[in-house]
Design a protein around this nucleic acid. Structure first.
Lengths: 143, 143
DNA sequence: ACCTTAAGTAACATTTAATGTTACTCTTTC
DNA sequence: GAAAGAGTAACATTAAATGTTACTTAAGGT
Protein backbone atom coordinates (compact mmCIF):
# COMPACT_ATOMS: atom_id res chain seq x y z
CA UNK A 1 0.00 0.00 0.00
CA UNK A 2 1.05 3.52 -0.55
CA UNK A 3 1.93 6.17 1.93
CA UNK A 4 1.60 6.25 5.59
CA UNK A 5 -1.70 7.69 6.78
CA UNK A 6 -1.45 6.36 10.32
CA UNK A 7 -0.37 9.72 11.65
CA UNK A 8 -3.35 11.35 9.97
CA UNK A 9 -5.75 8.87 11.58
CA UNK A 10 -4.15 9.29 14.99
CA UNK A 11 -4.24 13.08 14.90
CA UNK A 12 -7.83 13.01 13.70
CA UNK A 13 -8.80 10.73 16.60
CA UNK A 14 -7.00 12.87 19.14
CA UNK A 15 -8.51 16.11 17.88
CA UNK A 16 -11.92 14.46 18.04
CA UNK A 17 -11.31 13.31 21.61
CA UNK A 18 -10.00 16.74 22.60
CA UNK A 19 -13.14 18.40 21.27
CA UNK A 20 -15.34 15.80 22.91
CA UNK A 21 -13.65 16.44 26.24
CA UNK A 22 -13.91 20.17 25.82
CA UNK A 23 -17.65 19.71 25.28
CA UNK A 24 -18.02 17.95 28.61
CA UNK A 25 -17.60 14.24 27.88
CA UNK A 26 -14.86 12.47 29.76
CA UNK A 27 -14.40 9.48 27.48
CA UNK A 28 -14.45 8.93 23.74
CA UNK A 29 -15.16 5.53 22.17
CA UNK A 30 -13.73 3.76 19.15
CA UNK A 31 -17.13 3.74 17.53
CA UNK A 32 -17.62 7.50 17.80
CA UNK A 33 -14.14 8.17 16.49
CA UNK A 34 -14.40 5.60 13.70
CA UNK A 35 -17.59 7.31 12.68
CA UNK A 36 -15.89 10.63 12.19
CA UNK A 37 -12.92 9.10 10.38
CA UNK A 38 -15.15 6.74 8.38
CA UNK A 39 -13.17 3.66 9.18
CA UNK A 40 -13.60 0.49 11.20
CA UNK A 41 -13.62 0.74 15.01
CA UNK A 42 -10.95 -1.97 15.20
CA UNK A 43 -8.59 0.19 13.19
CA UNK A 44 -9.11 2.94 15.75
CA UNK A 45 -8.66 0.62 18.72
CA UNK A 46 -5.47 -0.80 17.30
CA UNK A 47 -4.01 2.62 16.84
CA UNK A 48 -5.27 3.96 20.16
CA UNK A 49 -3.64 0.98 21.81
CA UNK A 50 -0.25 2.25 20.65
CA UNK A 51 -1.01 5.71 21.98
CA UNK A 52 -2.03 4.20 25.31
CA UNK A 53 1.22 2.25 25.58
CA UNK A 54 3.10 5.47 24.93
CA UNK A 55 1.18 7.20 27.73
CA UNK A 56 -0.45 9.83 25.55
CA UNK A 57 -3.97 8.68 26.40
CA UNK A 58 -5.51 6.38 28.97
CA UNK A 59 -8.19 3.79 28.39
CA UNK A 60 -10.98 2.46 30.52
CA UNK A 61 -12.79 -0.66 29.38
CA UNK A 62 -16.48 -0.09 28.96
CA UNK A 63 -15.93 3.65 28.71
CA UNK A 64 -13.35 4.71 26.14
CA UNK A 65 -10.24 6.90 26.20
CA UNK A 66 -9.23 10.32 27.38
CA UNK A 67 -6.08 12.35 26.85
CA UNK A 68 -3.49 11.95 29.55
CA UNK A 69 -1.29 14.73 28.19
CA UNK A 70 -2.71 18.20 27.53
CA UNK A 71 -3.07 19.03 23.84
CA UNK A 72 -0.66 21.94 24.27
CA UNK A 73 2.04 19.58 25.47
CA UNK A 74 1.54 16.77 22.98
CA UNK A 75 3.61 17.21 19.82
CA UNK A 76 3.04 15.51 16.50
CA UNK A 77 6.39 13.83 16.97
CA UNK A 78 5.21 12.29 20.24
CA UNK A 79 2.28 10.84 18.35
CA UNK A 80 4.35 9.63 15.42
CA UNK A 81 6.88 8.07 17.76
CA UNK A 82 4.10 6.20 19.55
CA UNK A 83 2.97 4.76 16.23
CA UNK A 84 6.44 3.48 15.39
CA UNK A 85 7.83 6.01 12.96
CA UNK A 86 8.74 4.94 9.46
CA UNK A 87 11.78 6.11 7.64
CA UNK A 88 11.11 8.65 4.93
CA UNK A 89 13.20 6.76 2.37
CA UNK A 90 13.95 3.04 2.30
CA UNK A 91 17.19 1.36 1.35
CA UNK A 92 17.29 -1.48 -1.19
CA UNK A 93 14.75 -4.19 -0.63
CA UNK A 94 17.34 -6.84 -1.63
CA UNK A 95 21.03 -6.80 -0.73
CA UNK A 96 22.89 -5.35 -3.70
CA UNK A 97 25.90 -7.07 -5.27
CA UNK A 98 28.65 -8.03 -2.85
CA UNK A 99 31.40 -7.69 -5.41
CA UNK A 100 30.69 -4.19 -6.72
CA UNK A 101 32.37 -1.39 -4.72
CA UNK A 102 29.45 0.96 -5.34
CA UNK A 103 26.99 -1.63 -4.11
CA UNK A 104 29.07 -2.24 -1.00
CA UNK A 105 29.56 1.41 -0.12
CA UNK A 106 26.18 2.86 -1.02
CA UNK A 107 24.23 1.61 1.96
CA UNK A 108 26.25 3.28 4.71
CA UNK A 109 26.40 6.44 2.62
CA UNK A 110 22.64 6.55 2.18
CA UNK A 111 21.98 5.55 5.75
CA UNK A 112 23.67 8.68 7.02
CA UNK A 113 22.03 10.85 4.36
CA UNK A 114 18.58 9.51 5.10
CA UNK A 115 19.15 9.81 8.84
CA UNK A 116 19.60 13.55 8.36
CA UNK A 117 16.29 13.67 6.49
CA UNK A 118 14.52 11.80 9.26
CA UNK A 119 16.00 14.18 11.78
CA UNK A 120 14.59 17.29 10.11
CA UNK A 121 11.22 15.58 9.88
CA UNK A 122 11.42 14.87 13.59
CA UNK A 123 12.26 18.48 14.34
CA UNK A 124 9.42 19.81 12.25
CA UNK A 125 6.86 17.46 13.84
CA UNK A 126 8.17 18.28 17.31
CA UNK A 127 7.49 21.94 16.63
CA UNK A 128 3.74 21.44 16.15
CA UNK A 129 1.37 20.48 18.97
CA UNK A 130 -1.98 18.76 18.96
CA UNK A 131 -3.43 22.07 20.17
CA UNK A 132 -2.08 23.80 17.06
CA UNK A 133 -3.84 21.31 14.81
CA UNK A 134 -6.97 21.48 16.97
CA UNK A 135 -7.15 25.24 16.59
CA UNK A 136 -6.56 25.17 12.87
CA UNK A 137 -9.11 22.38 12.42
CA UNK A 138 -11.83 24.32 14.19
CA UNK A 139 -10.87 27.77 12.98
CA UNK A 140 -13.79 29.89 11.71
CA UNK A 141 -12.52 29.76 8.13
CA UNK A 142 -13.37 26.08 8.10
CA UNK A 143 -17.05 26.52 8.92
CA UNK B 1 4.52 -2.43 -0.48
CA UNK B 2 6.43 -0.59 2.13
CA UNK B 3 8.50 2.49 1.85
CA UNK B 4 9.80 4.24 -1.14
CA UNK B 5 13.16 2.88 -2.28
CA UNK B 6 13.06 4.51 -5.71
CA UNK B 7 15.40 7.27 -4.62
CA UNK B 8 17.85 4.66 -3.33
CA UNK B 9 17.81 2.81 -6.65
CA UNK B 10 18.24 6.01 -8.62
CA UNK B 11 21.16 7.25 -6.54
CA UNK B 12 22.80 3.84 -6.72
CA UNK B 13 22.49 3.84 -10.52
CA UNK B 14 23.84 7.36 -10.82
CA UNK B 15 26.81 6.69 -8.55
CA UNK B 16 27.55 3.58 -10.59
CA UNK B 17 27.40 5.56 -13.83
CA UNK B 18 29.57 8.31 -12.37
CA UNK B 19 32.22 5.80 -11.36
CA UNK B 20 31.99 4.08 -14.73
CA UNK B 21 32.51 7.40 -16.49
CA UNK B 22 35.39 8.31 -14.23
CA UNK B 23 37.01 5.02 -15.18
CA UNK B 24 36.89 5.89 -18.87
CA UNK B 25 33.59 4.47 -20.15
CA UNK B 26 31.25 6.94 -21.76
CA UNK B 27 28.01 4.98 -21.46
CA UNK B 28 26.50 2.73 -18.82
CA UNK B 29 23.84 0.13 -19.63
CA UNK B 30 20.76 -1.05 -17.78
CA UNK B 31 22.21 -4.53 -17.54
CA UNK B 32 25.42 -3.41 -15.86
CA UNK B 33 23.55 -1.21 -13.42
CA UNK B 34 20.90 -3.84 -12.69
CA UNK B 35 23.72 -6.22 -11.93
CA UNK B 36 25.14 -3.98 -9.24
CA UNK B 37 21.72 -3.24 -7.74
CA UNK B 38 20.60 -6.86 -8.12
CA UNK B 39 17.36 -6.03 -9.79
CA UNK B 40 15.80 -6.41 -13.22
CA UNK B 41 17.15 -4.28 -16.10
CA UNK B 42 13.63 -3.10 -16.90
CA UNK B 43 13.32 -1.61 -13.44
CA UNK B 44 16.47 0.35 -14.13
CA UNK B 45 15.35 1.46 -17.59
CA UNK B 46 12.00 2.61 -16.28
CA UNK B 47 13.62 4.70 -13.62
CA UNK B 48 16.39 6.03 -15.90
CA UNK B 49 13.67 7.08 -18.31
CA UNK B 50 12.35 9.49 -15.67
CA UNK B 51 15.82 10.88 -15.11
CA UNK B 52 16.26 11.33 -18.85
CA UNK B 53 13.00 13.25 -19.13
CA UNK B 54 14.18 15.51 -16.32
CA UNK B 55 17.43 16.18 -18.18
CA UNK B 56 19.72 14.70 -15.53
CA UNK B 57 21.11 12.05 -17.90
CA UNK B 58 21.00 11.45 -21.61
CA UNK B 59 20.38 8.15 -23.35
CA UNK B 60 21.57 6.70 -26.61
CA UNK B 61 19.92 3.57 -27.92
CA UNK B 62 22.35 0.76 -28.43
CA UNK B 63 24.83 2.41 -26.05
CA UNK B 64 23.36 3.33 -22.66
CA UNK B 65 23.27 6.53 -20.58
CA UNK B 66 25.66 9.17 -19.35
CA UNK B 67 25.25 12.01 -16.89
CA UNK B 68 24.28 15.29 -18.44
CA UNK B 69 24.73 17.24 -15.22
CA UNK B 70 28.00 17.07 -13.26
CA UNK B 71 27.73 15.10 -10.01
CA UNK B 72 28.70 18.23 -8.07
CA UNK B 73 25.70 20.09 -9.47
CA UNK B 74 23.11 17.34 -9.18
CA UNK B 75 21.30 17.37 -5.83
CA UNK B 76 19.33 14.54 -4.30
CA UNK B 77 16.30 16.76 -4.55
CA UNK B 78 16.78 17.06 -8.33
CA UNK B 79 16.78 13.29 -8.48
CA UNK B 80 13.80 12.86 -6.21
CA UNK B 81 11.86 15.50 -8.12
CA UNK B 82 12.57 13.67 -11.38
CA UNK B 83 11.11 10.50 -9.88
CA UNK B 84 7.91 12.24 -8.87
CA UNK B 85 8.30 12.92 -5.17
CA UNK B 86 5.92 11.34 -2.73
CA UNK B 87 4.53 13.10 0.26
CA UNK B 88 6.01 12.07 3.56
CA UNK B 89 2.61 11.61 5.20
CA UNK B 90 -0.67 10.81 3.48
CA UNK B 91 -4.09 12.18 4.31
CA UNK B 92 -7.08 9.87 4.82
CA UNK B 93 -7.53 7.25 2.16
CA UNK B 94 -11.34 7.75 2.31
CA UNK B 95 -13.13 11.03 2.74
CA UNK B 96 -13.99 11.40 6.42
CA UNK B 97 -17.50 12.24 7.63
CA UNK B 98 -19.06 15.29 6.02
CA UNK B 99 -21.16 16.13 9.07
CA UNK B 100 -18.46 16.15 11.77
CA UNK B 101 -16.69 19.50 12.20
CA UNK B 102 -13.43 17.78 13.08
CA UNK B 103 -13.62 15.64 9.97
CA UNK B 104 -14.34 18.67 7.83
CA UNK B 105 -11.56 20.83 9.25
CA UNK B 106 -8.81 18.30 9.72
CA UNK B 107 -7.75 17.96 6.11
CA UNK B 108 -6.81 21.57 5.45
CA UNK B 109 -5.10 21.69 8.83
CA UNK B 110 -3.01 18.62 8.10
CA UNK B 111 -2.32 19.69 4.56
CA UNK B 112 -0.51 22.77 5.75
CA UNK B 113 1.29 20.87 8.50
CA UNK B 114 2.46 18.16 6.15
CA UNK B 115 3.49 20.71 3.54
CA UNK B 116 5.95 22.14 6.07
CA UNK B 117 7.36 18.66 6.61
CA UNK B 118 7.78 18.12 2.87
CA UNK B 119 9.51 21.46 2.63
CA UNK B 120 12.19 20.59 5.19
CA UNK B 121 12.73 17.27 3.42
CA UNK B 122 13.20 19.16 0.18
CA UNK B 123 15.70 21.51 1.78
CA UNK B 124 17.71 18.69 3.28
CA UNK B 125 17.84 16.75 0.00
CA UNK B 126 18.78 19.90 -1.91
CA UNK B 127 21.75 20.34 0.40
CA UNK B 128 23.36 17.02 -0.62
CA UNK B 129 24.83 16.41 -4.08
CA UNK B 130 25.42 13.22 -5.99
CA UNK B 131 29.15 13.94 -5.60
CA UNK B 132 28.76 13.92 -1.81
CA UNK B 133 27.19 10.46 -1.90
CA UNK B 134 29.76 9.32 -4.46
CA UNK B 135 32.61 10.32 -2.18
CA UNK B 136 31.09 8.75 0.88
CA UNK B 137 30.30 5.56 -1.03
CA UNK B 138 33.86 5.12 -2.19
CA UNK B 139 35.57 6.46 0.92
CA UNK B 140 38.46 4.29 2.19
CA UNK B 141 36.54 3.29 5.30
CA UNK B 142 34.22 1.32 3.07
CA UNK B 143 36.92 -0.89 1.56
C1' DA C 1 -24.03 -11.79 40.97
C1' DC C 2 -25.54 -10.31 36.47
C1' DC C 3 -25.80 -7.39 32.58
C1' DT C 4 -24.15 -3.91 29.56
C1' DT C 5 -20.54 -1.44 27.39
C1' DA C 6 -16.53 -0.99 25.09
C1' DA C 7 -11.37 -1.96 25.00
C1' DG C 8 -7.91 -5.60 23.63
C1' DT C 9 -6.57 -8.73 20.32
C1' DA C 10 -6.12 -12.74 17.18
C1' DA C 11 -7.11 -14.30 12.71
C1' DC C 12 -8.35 -13.69 8.31
C1' DA C 13 -9.85 -10.98 3.97
C1' DT C 14 -9.19 -7.26 0.89
C1' DT C 15 -6.99 -3.61 -1.42
C1' DT C 16 -3.33 -1.30 -3.55
C1' DA C 17 1.28 0.27 -4.60
C1' DA C 18 5.78 -1.31 -5.62
C1' DT C 19 8.55 -4.36 -7.86
C1' DG C 20 9.72 -8.15 -11.03
C1' DT C 21 9.33 -10.33 -15.65
C1' DT C 22 8.46 -11.31 -20.53
C1' DA C 23 8.22 -9.86 -24.88
C1' DC C 24 8.23 -6.81 -28.24
C1' DT C 25 9.42 -2.28 -30.98
C1' DC C 26 12.55 1.36 -32.12
C1' DT C 27 17.26 3.68 -32.73
C1' DT C 28 21.88 3.91 -33.21
C1' DT C 29 26.35 2.08 -34.33
C1' DC C 30 29.30 -0.99 -36.85
C1' DG D 1 21.50 -5.34 -42.32
C1' DA D 2 23.05 -7.30 -38.01
C1' DA D 3 23.83 -6.48 -33.17
C1' DA D 4 23.24 -3.88 -28.99
C1' DG D 5 20.51 -1.84 -25.92
C1' DA D 6 16.83 1.84 -24.79
C1' DG D 7 11.64 2.43 -24.61
C1' DT D 8 7.48 0.55 -23.24
C1' DA D 9 3.21 -2.25 -22.77
C1' DA D 10 1.25 -5.97 -20.38
C1' DC D 11 1.11 -9.07 -16.96
C1' DA D 12 2.72 -11.56 -12.53
C1' DT D 13 4.25 -11.33 -7.92
C1' DT D 14 5.03 -9.51 -3.40
C1' DA D 15 4.12 -7.27 0.66
C1' DA D 16 2.29 -3.66 3.50
C1' DA D 17 -1.75 -1.19 4.90
C1' DT D 18 -6.31 -1.39 5.90
C1' DG D 19 -10.82 -3.59 6.72
C1' DT D 20 -13.66 -7.18 9.06
C1' DT D 21 -15.34 -10.81 12.13
C1' DA D 22 -15.42 -12.80 16.29
C1' DC D 23 -14.09 -13.51 20.56
C1' DT D 24 -12.02 -12.39 25.41
C1' DT D 25 -11.46 -9.22 29.21
C1' DA D 26 -12.23 -5.43 32.42
C1' DA D 27 -15.06 -1.94 34.42
C1' DG D 28 -19.47 0.14 36.01
C1' DG D 29 -24.32 0.10 36.94
C1' DT D 30 -28.43 -2.32 38.47
Amino acid sequence: MGANSKLTIAIHALVWAALNERQGSTYSTSEEIANSIKTNPVVVRRMMSDLTKAGLIESRRGAGWRLSVPAEKMTLWDINLALGPEETFALHRNEPSATCPVARGIRPALRSTFARVDEVVRQELARTTLADVFDETLSPSQN
